[in-house]
Design a binder for these strands. Structure first.
Lengths: 302, 302
DNA sequence: ACAAAAGTGTTAAACTTACACCCATGC
DNA sequence: GCATGGGTGTAAGTTTAACACTTTTGT
C-alpha cells in the first residue's frame, strides 16, 4: 500500500523499458538441509547409538556434473520471491512442508556454473530427522543423507600493526554407505585500510557439483556460529518433544566439543517446559520429555 | 583448481545449452551506507556538537521514481561477483575506495521494481564520515546524507502454546535540510509448526524509491543487532585514530540508549591501543586518541 | 570559578565454570 | 552388582552493572 503513483509520462517510460537489453543472470536457490542423524552402528546394550550431523544431497542425473552430488534447489520463477522458491523446491524435492529456512549467503562468482551466468542464494535449512528420514530412502530424486565432517585443517596468521591476513583451511567430508565426497576450502580474512573482508576458495573438490562444497561449508559455519551464540537455532533440529540430552548432543555435534551437563541444563532451562511424558532407554533411568517455551523465546522487549 | 574434468559429451551438452529459454531476473546491488554525522547545530561554548547516524541517499534523475531518493547501487555485470558489483558501484557513486561492506539480505519480492523482474542484494556499508563528508556535497550524482531515525512504533504479540505471532511496526524517518522521507514498515515474526519465519511489509512510504525503505530498515536493524552483540562492527565507523568518547557516542547512537562510561571503557579496553596523540576540545580536558588493536581482534582460536 | 568532557576506583549482583554427587533402570 | 544415562547441588572464578569520584581544560 504505497503512496507512490505513476504519472502518464512515467507509465510510458515503463512500457518502453526493455529489460532484455542488459545481461541478466539466472537465479537459483540452493538449500543446505541439516539434520541430526542416528548412526546405524551396531549398538551394544545400554549404550546409546551415536549421532551425527547429516546433510541432504541429491545425485545429479543430468549434465553438468552428472553423477556428482549437489544440494537440493532449483531455478526461481518470475512470480515468486527467492524465499518462496526455496520453500517450493524443498517441498518438491523432499516433501517437507515446514522447516527452518534462512538465507545465509549469495553465491555469484563468475564461472561457478558451466552453463553460464547463474547465481545462487544459499539457504540454511534445518529439519527434524525423525520426521524426515524415512522419506529420504524412498523418493525418486536420489536424495541421500550424508554424514558431514568438517575439520579445521591448517591456519596461517599474519597480524601486523594495521593489516592482517588470516587463512584457514577447512576439510569438508561427506560420507555414507561407502560413498565419500571431500573438498578443501580456504577461508581468507583480510584486514586492510581498517576494514575486514572474507573470501572463500575451493582448493580441492572430489564429488561435489558446482561450488556446492563451499556452500555447504559456509552453511555449516553459520550454523555453528549461531549455535555458539545463543543456541536457539538448535531447537529447529528437534522434534516437538525432546529430551535435554538429545538437545545437548545436538549442541555437541555442531560445536564439535563436549559440554558439561549441569551447566547446559541450567542454560536451557528458561527455554524449555517440562512435560509429563517420559522416554525409557535400555538399562538406565527414563528421561523427561520437554517442549519449547515459546513465551521465553519471545519475552524480550515487549 | 577443481579436479572436475568435462567429457566430450558434456562439453557438447554445455555448448547446446540455451540459458535464455528460461525467465531471468536482472540483478542489482544496493548499499545502505551509514556514517556518524556531526549535526551542524549552533554549538555553544564547551558543549560538543550533537552527532547522529546518517544514511547516504541518491536523488533519482530518471524514471521510475524520478525525484525520489534511492540507495546507491547498480546492475551487476556478467564478469563479476555481486561483491565486486557493490565495490565498483560504491566507488563510482561515492569515490570511496574502502569501506566495510557486507551482504545482509536479498530482496526479490515480485513487483518491487516497476521495470520488471529485478532483484537486489542488499549490502550494509559503513564508512568514516570525516573522510567522506566533504565529497558528498561536491559530487555530481546528487548524493546526500540524511539523518536517520527509527522508532519502534507499535507491537502486537500473540503467544500461544505452539504458535506465536509478533508484529512490530517501525517508523523510519530520514531528514536533512528540510527534506523529509518517511515510511512505516511492519515486521511479522511467525512461529508455526516449530519453526520461525520473518516477513517485512512496507505499509506506508513517502519519498523512497522502490522498496528501499525496507532495505534501509533491515540494514539498520542488522547494524543495531551486531552492535549489541559484540560492538566490533562499530570500529568500521571510526577513522584510524579516535577517542573512546567518539566510539561510545557511536554505540549510543546506534543502540538508541546511554551507556555507562566506565563500563564501556573497560569493555573496549582490550580492542584498542592508546597512542601518544591528544585531541583538545574547548573548555575541557584533552582526550587521548586510540587505534584498533588488531592482535586482540584476531587473538581467538589460534 | 565553573561547566563540560576525560578518565579512574569500588562494590554488589549476576552469570559461568568445574567438579562432586545421587537416582533409576535392565540385564 | 554395575554400567549407563538422567539429573541436582555447590563453591570459585569471572563478568556486568551501578554509582561515586578525581582530573584537565578554556573562557
Amino acid at each position: 500500500m504505497k503512496n507512490y503513483e505513476m504519472s502518464r509520462e512515467e507509465k510510458k517510460f515503463i512500457k518502453e523499458y526493455d529489460i532484455t537489453q542488459y545481461d541478466r543472470p539466472s537465479l537459483t536457490a540452493d538449500m543446505a538441509v541439516f539434520a541430526i542423524l542416528t548412526a546405524e552402528d551396531a549398538t551394544e546394550y545400554r549404550k546409546d547409538p551415536r549421532k551425527q550431523l547429516g546433510v541432504l544431497m541429491i545425485r545429479r542425473g543430468t549434465f553438468p556434473y552428472k553423477d556428482c552430488y549437489a544440494l537440493p534447489g532449483g531455478f526461481a520463477r518470475k512470480d515468486e520471491s527467492i524465499e518462496e522458491t526455496a520453500f517450493r523446491e524443498l517441498k518438491e524435492e523432499t516433501s517437507l512442508e515446514s522447516a527452518f529456512l534462512e538465507p545465509f549467503g549469495m553465491f555469484s562468482r563468475p564461472g561457478r556454473d558451466p552453463r553460464g551466468w547463474i547465481i545462487s542464494q544459499g539457504f540454511l535449512a534445518l529439519v527434524d530427522a525423525e520426521k524426515y528420514q524415512i522419506r529420504a530412502g524412498t523418493d525418486a530424486w536420489e536424495a541421500k543423507w550424508f554424514y558431514i565432517n568438517v575439520e579445521q585443517d591448517e591456519m596461517k596468521k599474519h597480524v601486523r600493526k594495521d593489516s592482517a591476513e588470516i587463512c584457514t583451511r577447512y576439510r569438508l567430508q561427506l560420507e555414507r554407505d561407502g560413498e565419500r565426497l571431500s573438498a578443501l576450502v580456504d577461508e581468507k580474512r583480510t584486514f586492510q585500510s581498517h576494514h575486514e573482508t572474507v573470501e572463500y576458495e575451493i582448493v580441492e573438490d572430489d564429488g561435489f557439483a558446482f561450488d556446492h562444497a563451499e556452500i555447504i561449508l559456509r552453511a555449516y559455519l553459520s550454523l555453528k556460529a549461531r549455535t555458539a551464540q545463543s543456541g536457539r537455532i538448535v531447537f529447529d533440529l528437534m522434534p516437538e518433544l525432546f529430551t535435554l540430552n538429545t538437545l545437548q548432543e545436538a549442541h555437541e555435534i555442531i560445536l564439535g566439543e563436549k559440554l558439561l551437563t549441569p551447566n547446559f541444563r541450567r542454560k536451557m532451562a528458561p527455554f524449555v517446559i517440562e512435560t509429563d511424558e517420559l522416554v525409557t532407554g535400555p538399562g538406565h533411568r527414563p528421561a523427561k520429555l520437554f517442549r519449547r517455551n515459546l513465551e521465553a523465546f519471545y519475552a524480550m522487549e515487549g
